[in-house]
Design a protein around this nucleic acid. Structure first.
Length: 264
DNA sequence: TTTCATGTTCAGCA
DNA sequence: GTGCTGAACATGAA
């Protein structure tokens, strides 16, 4: 479930359940999620350490280890952390498990598209991956500069983690819906007002999702996200929502609510 | 059985 | 370098 709001929820969950608990053992149930990492170094850094703090940049999480270094967690499409106490039954699809004296923290990921790694410092990791500023930190000025200069569909640009980090397929649809912007619109065709609207909507939507605990049912009725499905109707005008492939993903939008004519 | 999926990355091409 | 398309990754759910 991981775009920025979900990952922020994961961060708080880990802070609530797993800080300052020494890791007795790291169980790697499936090596796929640590592919690319130095396995011995990972185990060496983790075992005997406790997690001191958690940071987030976009969809990426960093766990500070007391013996030095930071764990990098990315949840892919189906990853999530699950804290377990002794009496809890282990869920399916546990790929890596950090075992404490009592209880554990599991990295659960059915599709195994998530990744766990190790880095000396979050800043270095962010630089290496060329991650853009976090979607909740980017200023209007930075936002306008970045997207005013980007070519191609605005939805694809919003999902580009190099430009701004944290927005994926679902939230990009919501942001554009709230601003009545066609997801296929060329970013360069957008006005200053569009830029301001997207920047504001981005912050509003992400913060709203965080505040409802990423439970879409608790979002305002005006949100497209609540009933995002083929055959559903627009929460604003009631007409049938359309889909289109943009940036390799399925975009949902209401063609009747758009501010401007379709571009095709 | 087939298709789609809240993500990232890479190859090939313009 | 930028952008687009398609595929790969690996699996569950509809």
């Amino acid at each position: 479930m991981p775009e920025l709001p979900e990952v922020e929820a994961f961060k708080r969950y880990i802070e609530r359940t797993s800080l300052e608990r020494p890791v007795a053992r790291m169980e790697i149930r499936n090596g796929v999620v640590i592919r690319g990492a130095d396995r011995p170094a990972l185990i060496e850094a983790v075992e005997g350490s406790e997690v001191l703090s958690v940071r987030r940049r976009g969809k990426q999480l960093f766990l500070e280890l007391s013996r030095g270094g930071w764990l990098t967690w990315h949840f892919g499409m189906t990853g999530r952390p699950v804290a377990l106490e002794r009496w809890d039954e282990e869920p399916r699809f546990v790929r890596v498990k950090f075992v404490f004296e009592h209880g554990s923290l599991a990295f659960v990921d059915p599709r195994m598209l998530g990744r766990i790694g190790l880095t000396a410092r979050p800043e270095r990791f962010i630089e290496e991956r060329r991650l853009g500023p976090d979607a909740l930190d980017i200023t209007l000025e930075e936002f306008t500069t970045t997207f005013g200069a980007s070519k191609g569909a605005i939805k694809a640009a919003l999902m580009d983690q190099h430009k701004v980090a944290g927005i994926g397929n679902l939230y990009s649809d919501e942001i554009l819906f709230q601003c009545r912007i066609d997801p296929r619109a060329d970013a360069r065709s957008l006005s200053e007002e569009d830029m301001r609207c997207m920047h504001r909507a981005m912050r509003r939507v992400l913060n709203m999702a965080i505040s409802v605990g990423t439970d879409f049912e608790r979002l305002p009725r005006s949100y497209l996200l609540r009933g995002r499905a083929v055959g559903s109707s627009c929460p604003r005008c009631g007409s049938l929502v359309s889909t289109a492939t943009v940036g390799g993903r399925t975009a949902f939008f209401c063609p009747f609510c758009l501010d401007r004519k379709s571009f095709f």
